[in-house]
Amino acid sequence: MSEQNLQGSLINSELIASLAARTALETPGVLRLEPTIKGFLASLGPAALANFHISGSQDGSYRHDGVVARINDGTATVHLDIATDIAYTALSVAESVQERVRENICHTGLNPGPVHVHILTIEASPGSIPR
């Protein structure tokens, strides 16, 4: 079995999506990932997804709340929708997410492709003092 095949069998888009989600949530200044319709339906269980004729990985991509990951020819592409903390500079937070996610993709043996980050909202973190 070649290394490429080994990679293909071990690292799937679901793993990359959960790695990217976890990495984003651990980045200072990220409050949460933002929900998507598909992620919402998936959270209700397989029955809800089946009702709407949606499968987790129709086009080889995997999505749950706030993250889509796709693997093509050994390169992983990620899209994240985030909410950031107003105490931080949103663009710096997003760039830090890009850097960390790409670094962690490297650890899986895949090539890091573009990591697209969409800042949907900038809010005070629930624990912070209102200003």
Partner: peptide, 30 residues
């Protein structure tokens, strides 16, 4: 409700930066 807010925010987006590492967009609402 959280999903409805997220979808409303997705309706208008602006590109802040685009590099080989990926694009950074922000909602006009933010």
């Amino acid at each position: 409700m959280a999903l409805a807010r997220a979808e409303a925010r997705r309706s208008k987006r602006l590109v802040l930066r685009g590099t080989e590492y990926g694009t950074v967009e922000i909602s006009e609402q933010a």
